[in-house]
């Protein structure tokens, strides 16, 4: 196999590796696969980036990437972690957003102006007042938003807890259909 063919095979293989926590998404869709290139010593270098610095899934991701690259024919594989530029939810692909919604997880706020999110006009009942007493909003949040319910698409939703089952999600509830749902936080 030529180097170009090998790199293409490895790229295809590691792109398809599922994320250990959001298993409906591949590493490529989540935006944490940064690149596949030839190393100086003739090996293959796969560059990944963590979502959060302390993301406990990173070790699993590293092992999965290594296994996928080897299965695709690479003998010498190095998995490199790059921190800069920092991962952002803007890198989550559009197809990934649809997949998340389909399994009941509200995707992160839109990169452009997707209709899934309603920007708050900052009214007294605006959604930045989420878990505190009335009138207590975040002093830092400049782009308040609320995700649409992934099940019924209602935008009448409320944040229940700012920290969810994984580092990258928060727990929300739909006030129309009453279902709680995970929401991938803006980051």
């Amino acid at each position: 196999m030529s180097t170009a063919d090998l790199l293409a095979a490895v790229r295809a293989a590691v792109s398809a590796v599922p994320d250990p926590e959001l298993r409906v998404l591949t590493l490529a869709e989540l935006g944490i696969l940064r690149g596949v290139s030839a190393g100086d010593d003739g090996g293959v270098v796969v560059t990944i980036t963590p979502t959060y610095l302390g993301c406990p899934a990173l070790e699993v991701i590293r092992a999965d990437v290594l296994a996928a690259a080897r299965a695709a024919g690479a003998e010498a594989v190095e998995v490199v972690t790059a921190l800069s530029p920092p991962w952002t939810t803007d890198w989550v692909s559009d197809s990934a957003r649809d997949k998340l919604t389909a399994v009941g997880i509200a995707p992160p706020p839109a990169r452009s102006s997707l209709p899934l999110f309603v920007l708050s006009p900052g009214a007294p009942d605006s959604p930045q007042v989420v878990d505190g007493p009335p009138g207590v909003g975040s002093p830092h949040r400049t782009r308040p938003h609320r995700p649409a319910c992934p099940r019924c698409r209602s935008v009448d939703t409320r944040e229940l807890a700012r920290f969810g089952s994984t580092a990258c999600t928060a727990l929300w509830r739909c006030l129309t259909c009453r279902e709680p749902f995970d929401h991938v936080k803006e980051h």
Partner: peptide, 13 residues
């Protein structure tokens, strides 16, 4: 959950 998540962020740093 919240404080454990924050601790995890700090540990990652």
């Amino acid at each position: 959950v919240a404080l454990a998540n924050i601790a995890l962020d700090l540990l990652g740093q």
